[in-house]
């Protein structure tokens, strides 16, 4: 892989993705083999907005590689509060660590920050923009459960604002995947994502109704429809209710359907689904560690 920074899933080729996923498979199979591989290395965590689990997942990954973390801590106790620019913050902090992880509320923050530092920088989410490690762990989970070629994948819920969806849809164009987008009309894919999919030669197949397409799917990726996207509570309930699943609604699905969700969920997947073999969302969350280990290992390089 020939990237100094990982700011967007759009920059990753099929070969890049497979390199990371292959390495993640090796690490997941035998994590103890790399327990001291990056001993002494430090990962700087810059979280300008709280995301406890992403931070924990990166911390766990770095520590399982034998390294350690240095954490900027919450924004209200840092220089940022005093009006320091992001460009200045990352130029200071790069001196403290061998790689940086950045989470920021503004779109494009990681892309900009990466121009100011020499150590590898990983985007851990920028506003409504990119979150490439989420995309990689999603791809890893799909590959483990259904494979990434000749599969039919349904992506459902808030497709307009859901950044995990945008990033995943784009990354899937690298593979032989039939993508179906299932959402209310008001929450369909935005223009920039359509543009990308179109550029990659991928057809945008949109559905407002899950039932019709569900029997043909190998993977169903569910995302949350937020209350604030709707003018009033009753409209929200009516619309969101059509995109909730339970064991009964899944009865028409393939036996080996893989149900995924970036979590946290609220009520879009009923708890009774958890007990079935279709439920892969907790496994998906756990996969964040080997995938982030693989990415850090590739970016940090060092001893074999």
């Amino acid at each position: 892989m020939r990237h100094d920074h990982i700011t967007s899933a759009r920059q990753l080729s099929r070969e890049d993705i497979e390199t990371v996923l292959d390495r993640a498979s090796e690490l997941a199979a035998d994590p103890s083999a790399v327990a001291d591989r990056h001993e002494g290395a430090l990962l700087g965590l810059l979280f300008f907005e709280p995301s406890t689990r992403t931070k924990m997942s990166f911390s766990a990954a770095m520590k399982r590689l034998g390294g350690d973390i240095v954490d900027m801590g919450p924004v209200d106790s840092s220089s940022v509060k005093k009006g320091e620019s992001l460009a200045d913050t990352v130029r200071v902090v790069e001196g403290y660590a061998d790689a940086l992880v950045l989470r920021h509320p503004s779109e494009g923050a990681a892309q900009m920050a990466s121009k100011f530092v020499d150590v590898p920088l990983i985007n851990a989410g920028d506003g409504a923009g990119q979150h490439p490690t989420q995309t990689l762990l999603d791809l890893y989970t799909i590959r483990e459960n259904a494979g990434l070629d000749d599969v039919s994948i349904g992506i459902m819920g808030d497709l307009k604002y859901g950044r995990t969806v945008h990033s995943l849809a784009h990354a899937l164009t690298n593979f032989d995947v039939s993508q179906h987008f299932i959402s209310p009309e008001s929450l369909q894919l935005p223009r920039k994502v359509r543009y990308d999919l179109h550029q990659e030669g991928s057809a945008v197949k949109e559905h407002t109704d899950l039932d019709a397409i569900l029997p043909s799917l190998d993977v169903l990726y569910v995302t949350r429809i937020q209350r604030e996207r709707f003018p009033d509570e009753s409209e929200y309930r009516e619309v969101a209710g059509e995109y909730q699943i339970d064991t009964e609604s899944l009865s028409v699905a393939k036996e080996d359907l893989s149900v995924m969700h970036p979590l946290p969920r609220v009520d879009e997947i009923a708890y009774d689904v958890d007990e079935t073999a279709k439920a892969n969302y907790f496994e998906q969350a756990h996969n964040g560690v080997p995938v982030r280990m693989a990415l850090l290992d590739l970016l940090l390089g060092g001893a074999q």
Binding site: S8, S85, G108, Q111, D126, G127, G129, Q130
Partner: peptide, 20 residues
């Protein structure tokens, strides 16, 4: 921030290289 805006020129528009 100390950066200029930057856009990729498309056939029928422009696209921000930072936020897409």
């Amino acid at each position: 921030e100390p950066v200029d805006s930057e856009f990729e020129v498309l056939d029928d528009g422009i696209r921000c290289v930072y936020c897409d």
